[in-house]
Computed example of a mutant assay.
Amino acid sequence: MKELRTDLTLDSFLCLFDVMEQEGYELYALYDEDTIQALAGITIKTNFYNKKHLYIYDLVTTSKARSSGYGKDIMLFLQEYATKNNCQYIALESGLQRLDAHRFYEDKINFDKFCYSFRKEVIGNSLLTK
């Protein structure tokens, strides 16, 4: 997880994970022998535009194992998991700078790019700008 979420400390990870787990977050690891090669942090949600869906919050393959098939393997697991849980979609967001990840999603596992995601920090900011 540290390769994907470089700003997290062990303490912040554990604190956030505790809250996220209470909200339905699950973390899956793909091992090769005794070594984690890929991680996926997910939850199942329902909303108006994705209906019932599996949402991927975190998806990472270790830098040493990229292009070794682990990303595709964990995505196949997630697709099966989504199917067993009657999900209509698998959804995720990906940072604009992650071009290699975007190629993987679109070219290797056939995801559609269908929207932009926006956010605004609310602490100390006003809603409108001048």
Results as ranks from 00 to 15, higher is better:
N86C: 11
S12W: 03
K108E: 00
H102K: 10
A82V: 00
T83A: 00
L96Y: 08
L54F: 14
L76T: 14
L78N: 03
R98S: 02
Y70H: 12
C87S: 08
L128M: 06
C87K: 11
D34T: 10
L78H: 06
R5D: 04
D32W: 00
I109K: 01
Y70L: 00
E33C: 03
D18C: 06
Q88N: 06
D18V: 05
T62Q: 06
K108S: 11
V122K: 13
A29W: 01
G95A: 09
Y70W: 07
F104Q: 01
Y105S: 10
L54T: 11
F111V: 07
D100Q: 10
L4H: 02
Q97C: 02
L99M: 06
I44K: 10
T83M: 07
S117G: 10
S63E: 06
L54C: 15
D7T: 03
A38C: 12
T62L: 07
N85P: 02
D100N: 09
G69P: 01
D18I: 12
L27Q: 12
N110P: 07
L127G: 14
L27T: 13
I56D: 04
L27K: 11
S63C: 00
C115K: 15
R66P: 00
T61M: 03
Y116G: 08
A101S: 11
G95V: 02
V19H: 15
F77I: 09
K120M: 11
E33M: 04
L76F: 13
R5V: 12
S63N: 07
A82H: 01
S63W: 01
R5H: 13
L128P: 00
T129M: 08
G95Y: 00
K120I: 15
G69V: 01
I56Y: 02
A101Y: 03
Q79T: 15
E3K: 10
L14P: 05
S12G: 04
F48H: 05
E121G: 14
S67N: 10
F48V: 11
E80G: 08
R119I: 07
K72Y: 03
K113Q: 04
A29T: 12
G69W: 00
D18F: 05
C15H: 13
S117P: 04
D100H: 06
L127H: 08
L8K: 08
I123M: 06
K108N: 05
R119V: 10
I90G: 02
C87E: 07
K130Q: 08
A29S: 13
R66F: 02
C15A: 13
K130R: 09
I44T: 05
Y55S: 08
L30W: 05
Q37C: 14
Q79L: 15
F17Q: 05
R5W: 11
T83E: 07
T62R: 03
G69S: 00
G24M: 13
T61K: 01
T62H: 06
L39D: 09
Y55D: 12
G24R: 13
F48P: 05
L92S: 10
A40S: 15
V60I: 04
Y70D: 01
N110W: 01
T62F: 01
C15P: 01
I90E: 05
V60C: 05
Q79D: 14
D32I: 04
F118Q: 07
T62S: 13
L128I: 01
K52A: 06
M20A: 09
E106V: 14
S12R: 02
E21P: 00
L16S: 14
K72R: 10
I74M: 13
L39C: 14
C115V: 05
K120L: 14
S63T: 08
L27S: 13
A91Q: 09
K84I: 09
F104M: 07
